[in-house]
Simulated assay, not measured.
Amino acid sequence: MNIANHKLKEEIIAFSKEIGIDKIGFASAGVFTGLKERLRVQQENGYQSGFEESDIELRTNPDLLLPRAKSIIAIALAYPSKLKDAPRSTREDRRGIFCRASWGVDYHHILRDKLRQLEAFIKERQPDALMKSMVDTGELSDRAVAERAGIGWSGKNCAIITPEFGSYVYLGEMITNIAFEPDQPLEDNCGTCNKCVEVCPTGALVQGGQLDSNKCIAFLTQTKGFLAEEYRTKIGNRLYGCDTCQTVCPENKGVDFHLHPEMEPDPEIVKPKLKPLLTISNREFKDRFGMISGSWRGKKPIQRNAILAIAHYKDKTAIPDLLELMKNDSRPVIRGTSAWALGKIGEMSTLEALENFKEIEQDEDVLLEIDRGISMLLGES
Rank of each mutant, 00 (worst) to 15 (best):
R125F: 07
L39P: 05
R116E: 10
G30P: 06
R100D: 00
D128H: 14
F15I: 05
F26M: 01
D128V: 14
D106S: 10
M131T: 13
R59G: 11
Q126N: 11
A120G: 00
E92V: 12
K70A: 15
G20R: 10
L83G: 01
V41G: 05
A86V: 06
R91S: 04
R116Y: 11
I19H: 02
L65S: 12
H109C: 05
F26E: 06
F32G: 00
S49H: 08
A69E: 09
L66P: 00
D22T: 06
K123Q: 08
D136A: 10
L39S: 11
H109T: 12
A129S: 08
D93T: 09
D106R: 10
E92Y: 13
S102V: 04
I97F: 04
K123F: 03
G46I: 13
I75Y: 07
Q126F: 07
V105S: 13
L64M: 10
D22Q: 04
Y79A: 03
H109E: 12
Y79H: 06
R91Q: 09
K123S: 04
G25I: 12
E57G: 08
S102T: 14
K123H: 03
M134Y: 15
I110G: 05
S71T: 09
D63K: 05
K36E: 15
T33Y: 12
Y47N: 14
Q48M: 15
R88Y: 02
E18P: 00
S49G: 10
R100C: 02
D106F: 09
L58T: 05
E18A: 08
F26Y: 07
S81F: 03
T90C: 03
P67Y: 00
L65N: 12
W103G: 03
F15V: 06
L39E: 06
R112P: 02
A29M: 05
C99V: 11
A101F: 13
F32S: 00
E124P: 00
V41H: 15
I110H: 14
Y47H: 15
G25Q: 11
L39W: 07
E119F: 03
L130S: 01
H109Q: 15
D55I: 02
A27E: 07
E57L: 13
Q42C: 10
N61A: 15
G46Y: 13
L118K: 00
V31E: 07
G20Q: 08
S133H: 02
E119T: 04
K84H: 07
S89T: 10
K114P: 06
T90Q: 02
G50N: 10
V105W: 09
E57Q: 13
R91Y: 01
A101W: 08
P62E: 14
P62F: 14
